[in-house]
């Protein structure tokens, strides 16, 4: 290939990637930078600050440190991620993957059923669970627990955080199962055979072979699901809008409520920057863990 040809190709490549770069710059990079700037002002959508936002330095961040509601939303987000993504989805996804590791007639059907919640749009998931968790003796979950002699509960009022965790676990088992299935299939049968020859029982095989060899898959899954669970908005917003009394106000919902209901853009941005920095840190871990070959 001639030099001029190579040069032409190089220019064409730059030209081909340019529209993507421009869009990402306009709608992601610039807003991210702008969030940092806004967080240093007292900008608001209403009140005196709306007309004439002032630079306030780190005042918003100082306010964050003493804001009970902010810490509460961080705590809620932490428990939400821990119990739904890290524990619930992972355990049930791994369990499903292992249980479905054997051929049987209904396997494709069970597989599809477990994956289905993953395909449902957030708002629809919220609607379905509003019916499941409906208060009163005719609510579906109340009907189910009645078999075990439990009295009807007002699920979303009495146990709001537990309920949104259950809803999110429901939504994510399928994705965890898919990743775990691919992880399991890369473990060679010979290892299992050898272990059985040596007289290992099922639980020993799981602890000494399956689990250690799944560690890379699990680690990858944890990074991906942590990031995507922090980003959850619609599922919980449509179901509870953060209530009752802020008990399901995940940090994403907190930002939204601060910015668009309390109109405190500057303060909302400070919260956003905290989330941004944390997500980017997890993202960098992810880049390193993947050992991305580019």
């Amino acid at each position: 290939m001639s030099v001029s040809f190579t040069r032409r190709e190089a220019w064409r490549n730059r030209f081909l990637i340019l529209p993507s770069v421009l869009l990402l710059a306009a709608f992601v990079v610039y807003p991210a930078g702008f969030a940092v700037y806004t967080s240093l002002t007292n900008e608001a959508l209403s009140g005196p600050a709306a007309m004439n936002p002032r630079f306030v330095g780190f005042a918003n961040y100082a306010k964050l440190l003493t804001d009970q509601n902010f810490w509460r939303s961080l705590a809620i987000t932490f428990w939400f991620v821990l119990f739904s993504a890290i524990i619930g989805q992972l355990v049930l996804g791994l369990l499903s993957a292992m249980l479905l590791n054997r051929r049987f007639a209904l396997r494709p059907l069970v597989n599809a059923i477990i994956l289905m919640p993953n395909a449902v749009p957030e708002v629809v998931a919220a609607l379905m669970w509003a019916s499941m968790l409906a208060a009163g003796e005719y609510g579906t979950l109340n009907n189910i627990v009645a078999w075990f002699g439990v009295d009807p509960q007002r699920w979303l009022t009495s146990f709001p955080l537990t309920m949104i965790i259950i809803v999110n676990i429901w939504r994510g088992i399928g994705f965890a199962m898919i990743l775990m299935t691919s992880g399991l299939s890369s473990i060679s049968d010979e290892l299992y055979e050898a272990a059985r020859m040596d007289g290992a029982n099922t639980s020993q095989i799981f602890r000494r072979i399956t689990l250690p060899l799944l560690v890379p898959t699990i680690f990858l899954y944890l990074l991906v699901s942590t990031v995507s669970t922090i980003a959850i908005f619609g599922l919980v917003f449509a179901l509870t809008r953060g209530g009752p009394a802020g008990s399901t106000e995940l940090v994403g919902i907190y930002i939204y409520n601060q910015s668009f209901n309390s109109y405190q853009l500057g303060y909302g941005s400070a919260v956003a920057v905290v989330v941004l920095v944390f997500s980017l840190l997890v993202g960098m871990l992810y880049v390193r863990a993947l050992k991305v070959d580019v």
Partner: peptide
């Protein structure tokens, strides 16, 4: 990759202004 991990809620305010 880093852009992928940014939660959209964290960008929503500046995005609104853009």
């Amino acid at each position: 990759i880093l852009v992928r991990v940014i939660p959209p809620t964290a960008l929503i305010v500046p995005l609104y202004k853009v």
